[in-house]
Amino acid sequence: MIHPLTYVHPDAKIAPNVKIDPFTTIHKNVEIGEGTWIGSNVTIMEGARIGKNVRIFPSSVISAIPQDLKYKGEDTTTIIGDNTTIRECVTINRGTSDKNATKIGNNCLIMAYTHIAHDCEIGNHCIFSNNTTLAGHIIVGDYVVLAGLTAVQQFVRIGSHSFVTGGSLVRKDIPPYVKAAREPLSYVGVNSVGMKRRGYSIDQINHILDIYRILFVRGYNVSKALSIIETEIPVSDERDEIITFVRETGRGIMKGYIRRHSNEGVE
């Protein structure tokens, strides 16, 4: 299943039913799991750990050294989970001594020309649309959708089940379950469509909406909003997840709802 015009380093560990197309290069210290397909002109560099049934399309570069001047050649990895698809010309850099690994979860779709920098941690079932760019040390939860041309600043966290609209500049943390849009990036509602697709009930979605009305719509500062949420909103896993996320933010969270002036047009 390995084309004769492909180069595979003798120390690479390739499962027996992996298919590798011509003109691809597999470096040493690479592991590739069963059922994976790697297209032509792909480069898999040292430290790659690729799971089962992964698909990597032509011209992608996986596990290149970080684009970070602090990197001094330390032994680090890039870990890609099972059933993940990586489309054309994607670049994923391996970790630095900070976390020692860049991690992509299971069942993700990473579309063409996306860049994922060193020490990022991406959850399961994420979709990154074309030309998404992640700087280093970013943490992304499960079921996150980043629409095309989204750029994320280093050390940002993006909560599970959130949706970020195309062309967004993400400079602050995005809590779970929300839709984020506009410039500067702001809360514009909850990701009700995504949650319905994943089995959340209307009552659960309304419960999350009640939390974010307090946090983002009513004009409270963050500490006051959290106090009200803890007092007035019934305990739930979603409530506790949101509270914990906001309290642990390092960069601060994105802005609340911004009402546009009438002379700016209808939205």
Rank of each mutant, 00 (worst) to 15 (best):
I2W: 08
I2T: 15
H9F: 02
D11M: 11
D11W: 09
I14T: 03
P16R: 10
N17G: 11
P22V: 14
I26N: 01
K28P: 08
K28W: 07
V30D: 02
V30W: 05
V30Y: 06
E31W: 03
G33V: 13
G33K: 08
G35Y: 10
W37V: 11
G39E: 01
G39A: 05
V42P: 00
M45Q: 03
E46W: 08
G47N: 10
A48F: 07
R49D: 07
G51K: 03
K52S: 13
N53I: 12
R55M: 14
R55T: 15
S59V: 08
S60A: 15
V61M: 11
V61D: 05
I62K: 00
S63I: 04
A64N: 03
I65A: 08
P66T: 12
Q67C: 04
D68V: 06
D68F: 05
L69S: 11
K70R: 10
K70D: 11
T76G: 07
T78P: 01
I79A: 02
I80C: 03
I86Y: 02
E88F: 02
V90F: 03
N93E: 15
N93P: 13
R94K: 15
R94T: 12
K103P: 00
K103M: 12
I104N: 01
G105P: 05
N107W: 04
C108S: 14
L109I: 10
I110P: 02
I116W: 03
A117I: 00
H118W: 12
C120E: 13
E121K: 12
I122W: 01
N124I: 01
N124D: 13
N124P: 02
C126G: 01
S129N: 04
N130H: 13
N131P: 06
L134F: 06
G136I: 04
H137A: 09
H137Q: 05
V140R: 00
V140E: 00
G141W: 00
A147M: 07
L149T: 08
V152G: 06
Q153K: 14
Q153H: 15
F155N: 11
V156A: 02
R157K: 15
I158Y: 00
G159T: 03
S162V: 05
V164K: 00
T165V: 10
G167K: 06
S168D: 06
L169F: 13
D173W: 07
D173C: 12
D173G: 12
P175V: 08
P176G: 05
Y177G: 09
V178W: 00
A181C: 07
R182K: 15
E183V: 06
Y187V: 04
V188H: 08
V190E: 04
G194L: 05
R197F: 05
R197Y: 05
N206C: 07
H207F: 09
L209W: 06
D210V: 06
I214R: 04
I214H: 00
F216G: 07
Y220D: 03
V222M: 05
S223R: 10
S227W: 05
I228E: 06
E230G: 12
T231F: 05
T231I: 06
E232N: 04
V235Y: 09
R239S: 10
D240Y: 05
D240L: 15
E241K: 12
I243W: 08
F245Q: 01
V246P: 01
T249D: 00
G250P: 02
R251V: 09
R251T: 08
M254V: 11
K255Q: 09
G256E: 09
G256A: 13
R260F: 03
R260G: 02
S262L: 14
E267Q: 09
